[in-house]
Design a protein around this nucleic acid. Structure first.
Length: 617
RNA sequence: GCCUCCUUAGUUAAAUGGCAGAACAGCGGUUUUGUAAACCGCAAACGUCAGUUCGAUUCUGACAGGAGGCUCCA
């Protein structure tokens, strides 16, 4: 058990240090990268000839435990920069030297910006520790100094703070070995990264491991196969899911739900081809930015086409078909349609990252004065949609990064304006949003929605994007009250984002046990014995006629076996028909995941199921 | 794309430098069953292509596919 007087980040960070120390003891020639704190634990990057194996992880764990017993003190020392450079150079710690040289040149290692999950160093210090976060310190005589921490023979460049001695590090477990580029750039050398978990107590670690095991059980790739929802084929290719009847049912049902929610707000369905001449993307700006990720097609006459990686440019051409009056605006075009992106093979993952995905996309073409109302409406749709599945939403305002304007279309002033518009909507709606610099799309700022699932994990889901660039590029206008051409704006609104990705989240959220309204099969009807087939079929027909999705089974298996099959398919209701139910006056109803079997009349059962469908529970 | 690891029936999986053993699912039969696995039988697999070897599912390499990361993500 770790000392709870220290913030958990400190405990994790110190654990990372001891990990590095243990690796150095076991593999003395190791060069050290960096070892920050991440969610639930830490990692440390190493460079050495030897390739770590899972057996090494056990050895390293053992050595860490030994160091733990030694209770080695974390001693903070301040060294003049030059001395530190010489020191780490002498030990062959080239990466540390590189970091120090950077401090010398730029005054910072820039590591925080580079790391994907920048550690949030805690400012809480233990008593008697005066200096905290700044890694570099300007000494009294103007000599630049850095802080190093010494534990036993191991010394690391570090801003601290740390626990007092190695006996106080966290209850930990080394979880995996992975490759990671030095400083996060694929141009650099790839180091070996060891990931670890660390908590205050055994109990917390155990709980976390249990959560991970539960997440693994719910892995949508596994459940997708078990529940027969989708599949992949080596002949078709990676990242190209094929949808079974049950999976297709889920897709359509979700899409219909979105459509139902959109209907009151005046959306109209449109349809577009899935390929285009490259000219469209040259004009939109996508070609220059994303040409490597496009699936390209050359026609027999030598013209270059591309599969559409998104729908907005096509939709602009729908709007551009004629001149609209301000009276006809907003024009709201909704389109559930598949997009294609040539993702790197290493990035593909189940349904969450694929090469062919279906967007529930909509574009609102409106006047600047209409932005607030339109975004507010989309926001309402999103809230209703995610509430139905029991997700709690967090909102993020994704802004541009003024330091990297080359990443974006348009001018700084235009961005300021667009972002101001979004802030105004958020304020007017009295919603809370965290602001995130550099998370914007290249054509405009976004309001992103993050959903927390039943295991407490957060996923980015819906997004509303304000685009002032593409209307400019495609010269989209309306005629205003004065008879002048007025520049319009475009709002991108996806509720699920991608159906594939949303389903991956939904499958894991429900653990495959979909609510009745979504379940591909809602009711299972099985027979007890030979004489009950007719009654089973009759009831099946009766329930189907009521619009329920029923699977009947009068095979010659035992009742226990039939129930097992239905439970494994996570069918919400199971009915067994035997002598007792032959008359169909009273049904014995088994509810998924429950042992009790309430008795009810057929009509009462139908009423109950229909009510659940109605309420989407 | 990069790093590490993996690839045996539909699925889960065992063993092996010299015939690949099983479970579940499937199919055929027996049984007619009361809420998470009745019984018997049958069929079905070493990802692909090279190399080493008398002989390769096993060793080596390439390719394909997968896993965990990294990079990327309109």
């Amino acid at each position: 058990m770790a000392d709870e007087h220290f913030p958990i980040e400190t405990v994790r960070h110190s654990t990372a240090h001891i990990l590095a120390g243990a690796v150095l003891e076991l593999f003395p020639d190791t060069k050290l990268g960096v070892g920050p704190v991440i969610e639930n634990g830490f990692f440390y990057d190493f460079d050495l000839e030897h390739k770590f194996t899972p057996v090494d992880l056990l050895k390293i764990e053992k050595r860490i435990k030994e160091i733990q017993k030694r209770k080695e003190k974390f001693v903070r020392r301040e060294m003049p920069l030059e001395e530190a450079i010489a020191y780490f150079k002498g030990r062959g710690q080239d990466f540390k030297v590189e970091l120090l040289e950077d401090i010398k040149k730029h005054g910072t290692t820039k590591m925080d910006e580079i790391l994907h999950n920048p550690p949030q160093p805690s400012l809480t210090l233990r008593e008697g520790e005066k200096i905290s976060t700044p890694l570099k310190i300007r000494g009294d005589k103007g000599v630049m100094k850095v802080s190093v921490y010494e534990t036993g023979k191991f010394i690391d460049l570090c801003r601290g703070p740390h626990v007092e001695h190695s006996g106080q590090i966290g209850v930990f477990k080394l979880t995996s070995i992975a490759g990671a580029y030095w400083r996060g750039s694929e141009k650099n050398k790839q180091l070996q990264r060891i990931y670890g978990l660390a908590f205050y107590t055994e109990d917390e670690l155990k709980k976390h491991l249990e959560m991970m095991a539960e997440a693994e059980k719910r892995d949508h790739r596994k459940l997708g196969e078990q529940l027969d929802l989708f599949t992949f084929s080596d002949l078709v290719g990676p990242g190209l899911p094929l949808w079974t009847p049950k999976g297709t049912f889920l897709r359509n049902t979700l899409d219909n739900f979105v459509w139902e929610l959109r209907a009151p707000y005046g959306y109209q369905k449109v349809e577009i081809p899935h390929i285009t001449k490259k000219d469209l993307y040259e004009k939109s700006g996508h070609w220059q930015k994303f040409k490597d990720e496009l699936f390209k097609i050359t026609t027999r006459e030598g013209h270059e086409f591309a599969m559409k990686p998104m729908n907005c440019p096509h939709h602009t051409q729908l709007y551009a078909r004629r001149q609209f009056s301000y009276r006809e605006l907003p024009q709201r075009y909704a389109n559930t349609t598949t997009c294609y992106r040539d993702e790197q093979t290493g990035e593909l993952h189940g349904l969450s990252r694929v090469r062919a995905f279906t967007q529930d996309d909509a574009h609102v073409f409106c006047r600047t004065s209409q932005i607030g109302k339109e975004i507010s409406n989309i926001w309402e749709i999103i809230k209703k949609f995610y509430k139905a599945a029991g997700f709690s939403l967090t909102v993020r305002l994704s802004l541009h990064d003024p330091a990297q304007m080359d990443k974006y279309l348009g001018e700084e002033a235009q961005w300021q304006n667009a972002e101001g518009q979004l802030r105004a909507v958020i304020k007017e709606k009295r919603e809370k949003a965290i602001e995130a610099k550099g998370e914007a799309a290249f054509y405009g700022p976004k309001i992103d929605f993050l959903a927390k699932d039943s295991l407490g994990r957060q996923w980015q889901v819906a997004t509303i994007q304000l685009d002032m660039n593409q209307p400019e590029r495609f010269d989209l206008t309306c005629v205003n009250e004065k008879g002048e051409k007025e520049r319009i704006v475009m709002i991108h609104a996806a509720i699920m984002g991608s159906i594939e990705r949303y389903l991956s989240i939904l499958i894991e959220h429900y653990g495959g046990a979909f609510p009745v309204w979504l379940a591909p099969v809602q009711v299972y009807v099985g027979s007890v014995g030979k004489g009950h087939s007719t009654a089973v079929r009759k009831l099946g027909k009766m329930l189907s006629a009521e619009g329920l999705r029923v699977e009947t089974d009068d095979g010659n298996d035992t009742v226990g076996y039939k129930i097992r099959k239905a439970e494994k398919q996570k069918i919400p209701y199971m009915l067994v028909i035997g002598d007792k139910e032959k008359s169909l006056r009273k049904l014995t109803v088994r509810i998924r995941g429950q042992q009790k079997q309430p008795q009810m009349a057929v009509s009462a059962f139908i009423k109950r199921v229909k009510k659940e469908i109605e309420n989407k529970t």
